[in-house]
Design a protein around this nucleic acid. Structure first.
Lengths: 338, 338
DNA sequence: TTGTAGGCGTTATCAA
DNA sequence: TTGATAACGCCTACAA
């Protein structure tokens, strides 16, 4: 089946290809009747412009690349939804690049991004090092980092849409202090390195302000296949801390199950809060407290920001950093207002 | 910053662009020393071939499109992982197209797929109608439908990698019969229409073989925002059925919570099984039985199949249908061997 | 309002 | 082994 081109349409409508191109691109210098004639030809032949050729001619692909870690896919589904919906509005195509330990390092992803000449990039945090960022920066390709605060160096063509996890945890801990609780633990999450670091900073800052030192970072090695197994063992040798902070739902659930099975009462003996919320936390019994973070919006905002960066001819440097607010969701595993 | 092209490299290395093209494409008719010279020039200038131009010249983009429903994103994460990993191996770029009710109907997605001239398509089932399939077929673009059995008409350039949900449920029900149980209910899932239909068929077939009729399809309207709310209300007027089948984890969990809270015992009063497994089912107490379905493999196999279809010059028609096996996972919500 | 022709960055076919 | 040169399909001055 021969792919039909702009030439075929031109011949069919008995005009030049320039005219066809004009009607495709809504140039309004085309006379009504010839426009109609061309439209008919297009319909009749079922012609669809070749985006590749357009891309070449315009040096502009109208596609943006989204890169994120494979492991985090299911957690970032809502952000992705926000990104995709807005991308749809602006008619962007989406190239999807995942990074995973063995198979595709960030290096390969960058290579592929450059080669495909995407117009912009959405980068999930926790996916790259500063070096890699530098490489991307060299190519002057607009990007926005989404998820958490990006703290590396950056020039003007990188934006950031983020939740301030440091502040979130800082406030949570301060609040606990106010309630007379300072036996606080933070469980490690190996999938979200930079978030983890920020949260740790938040706690440490809160502790430091009280002249105390934060020591209960629950870090475990890979011998433990699950945080459940780890925390089960942990409880054999230790009593649980009063307030336990986890980043993701499954870790919070793991802690809860282990503690419950070890005979502890929640929230009387220990409180648990997951930073990230998920519908499953609400399905647990007791229901696990968390934070409401508008994931979908975060994605939508990120894509919108990128779009602005793409159209603005790099003159007006508006806000390229947008903080997303969070709100506590009190459920059954915490005792009072967070 | 001027994008550097093959011309720049040619000038730098003092050869013609044809030669540069040859070393890029590993054509082995290039003399060793000129090859080196070109390589150096490439390194020095940081040249990266423009995939768009290549695509135009070759009428081949080396990119495949993955289309799936936004809502199902988090559920399909593992399949996606399988797809992406294998795509990485073959150096395919991935265009990601999501469908969602209001914003992007399948129609738009098809439009975009055609325009971007992708080499192939991976289609998640439950995303399209037969008509839409026809449109895609017209363009002769190789695709594989992944997830469940595709039952529409199809020509030779569409493959199918699937789980036979009809058989799965058929066997499950037969097994229940063998255990003397025939009070069986199936809960509707509005996100997975075609899967639902297949499962219903499976049950009905099993019932028919016993000369019975299946009546307990738990279908609820949109007035209920959650299946939990629905089942809570359901239990106010009805006793639970003996064996309850749900498709996804959250529905199974919802049933369990509602039943437990209504004072029923599991699995003594009612059994629950979720067809799709998830880590959360194992975190529930009691742990909910399900089926192990090798999602990652299914994705990997699908992408591999598509790759085969892409390289085979449509002469050797190997197997284009591959059934993925499932295995029951007995946990605490069912009483005996399924 | 329409058509002509050059250019976008590669690959591939011929010659040399 | 290398170099011209014509595609690939479209866009856009510039002319007509």
């Amino acid at each position: 089946m021969k792919r039909i081109t702009i030439y075929d349409v031109a011949k069919e409508a008995d005009v030049s290809l320039a005219t066809v191109s004009r009607v495709i691109n809504d140039s309004n210098v085309v006379r009504e009747d010839t426009r109609n004639r061309v439209q008919e030809a297009i319909e009749k032949l079922g012609y669809k412009p070749n985006a590749i050729a357009q891309g070449l001619a315009l040096s502009k692909t109208t596609t943006i690349s989204i890169v994120m870690s494979e492991k985090l896919l299911s957690y970032n589904a809502k952000i992705l939804n926000g990104l995709m919906d807005v991308a749809k509005i602006y008619n962007y195509n989406i190239m999807f690049n995942t990074t995973s330990k063995g198979i595709s390092k960030m290096q390969d992803v960058i290579e592929s991004i450059i080669k495909s000449r995407v117009d912009g990039v959405i980068l999930f945090n926790d996916n790259f090092t500063e070096d890699e960022m530098d490489v991307l920066n060299e190519y002057q390709i607009p990007m926005v980092v989404v998820g958490s605060k990006f703290e590396g160096k950056r020039d003007e063509n990188v934006g950031n849409v983020y939740v301030d996890f440091e502040k979130l945890v800082y406030e949570l801990v301060k609040d606990a202090f106010a309630r007379g609780i300072d036996d606080i633990a933070l469980m490690e999450d190996k999938l979200n390195i930079s978030m983890m670091k920020q949260m740790k900073n938040g706690i440490e800052k809160a502790f430091a302000e009280e002249g105390k030192e934060f020591k209960n970072y629950l870090s475990y090695d890979d011998a433990y296949k699950t945080s459940y197994g780890y925390y089960q063992d942990y409880l054999k040798e230790n009593k649980p801390h009063r307030l336990n902070i986890a980043f993701r739902d499954s870790q919070a659930i793991a802690m809860m199950n282990a503690a419950l099975e070890a005979g502890y009462k929640i929230p009387e003996d220990l409180e648990i809060v997951s930073v990230l919320d998920s519908k499953y936390l609400n399905m647990m019994r007791p229901r696990i407290s968390a934070y409401n973070i508008p994931d979908y919006d975060m994605g939508a905002i990120a894509m919108r920001l990128l779009q602005k960066m793409l159209i603005s001819d790099s003159d007006n440097k508006e806000r390229r950093d947008m903080e997303i607010r969070y709100t506590p969701i009190e459920r059954d595993t915490t005792e009072s207002a967070q």
